[in-house]
Amino acid sequence: MPTETKDESAEPASKVELPDSVAGSGEIPSFDITLRVRRYLPEFYDEAYWDDFQVTMYGTDRVLDALHKVKWEMDGSVSFRRSCAHGVCGSDAMRINGHNRLACKVLLKDLNTSKPITVEPIKGLPVEKDLIVDMEPFFQSYREIMPFLMNESAPPSKERLQSAEERERFDDTTKCILCAACTSSCPVFWTDGQYFGPAAIVNAHRFIFDSRDDAGDMRLEVLNDKEGVWRCRTTFNCTDACPRGIQVTKAISEVKQAILSRKV
C-alpha cells in the first residue's frame, strides 16, 4: 500500500476523532519496585552497603523520581546530585543496573521491574557519600586540555567568519554536558586514574576541529602523552554511556588520526 503523503499547506482540521486512550479514560498504570541503593555514609559506618527500598511508582516515572520518593518520603539521608531533571545539566550520572546512565533519563518501565533495580555511584572517582563522587579529578583532566578557544590573530571588528561546513565539523562534540558517564565507564580509567579519559578528549576534539582555533597542535601534544589518547582500547563503553548520543569513540579515533597526520 503506498504511504499517504501529508499535505502541509492545508489547514489542519478544526476537529478530529481521538482514540479513547488519548482523549482520556483508563488509569495511569502503577507498579511496585525495589530500589537497591549503594549506600556509603563514612561519618557513621566504615563500609559501604546495600539498602533496599520498596516504592510504588507510576506511568512514566524515572529512576530520579524513585530516588526522590525515597529521599522525600522514606529516608532523607539518601544522597545524590541532581538539578535540571531532563538530561541537560549532567548532575546525576550513576550506575543503574550496571550501566552508566543519567537517573533523570531512565524510565522505570523500561527496566525489568520484577527484579531489584540497583543504583550505584559511577566508578573510578572517589565516593564521598552514597551516590556522590568527587568530580575534581574529572574536571582536572578537562582543564588540562585547555578547553577554550585560542586565536592569537587580532580579533575582527565583527564576528570571525566560519562556513556552515566548518561549523558542522565539530558539532557532535559541542553537545557534551560534562556528566562523566563516559569517563567513568572506561575500563582503562578504572585501572589508571591518570588517563585523561574520553570526556577530556571529546572536549579537546571540539577545539581541535574548530576552524577558528589556532592551538590544535598544542592540544594534540598534550593528548599524545603517555596518559593520552593512546591508552584508549576502543571498548565503546563510552559511546554506549553518553546520554547526549555523542560518537565518543569516533571522536577519539579522529584525534588519534590527527596526531598521526599532523604531528612531526
Binding site: 577554550f148 580579533p155 564576528e159 570571525r160 566560519q162 556552515a164 561549523r167 574548530d210
Partner: peptide, 16 residues
C-alpha cells in the same frame, strides 16, 4: 560570545 568561541549557526556567507 563569538570571540570567546561560541559555535553559533552560520549563514552561507559564514556570518552568525
Amino acid at each position: 560570545l563569538e570571540k570567546m568561541g561560541l559555535p553559533f549557526n552560520r549563514t552561507p556567507e559564514g556570518r552568525i
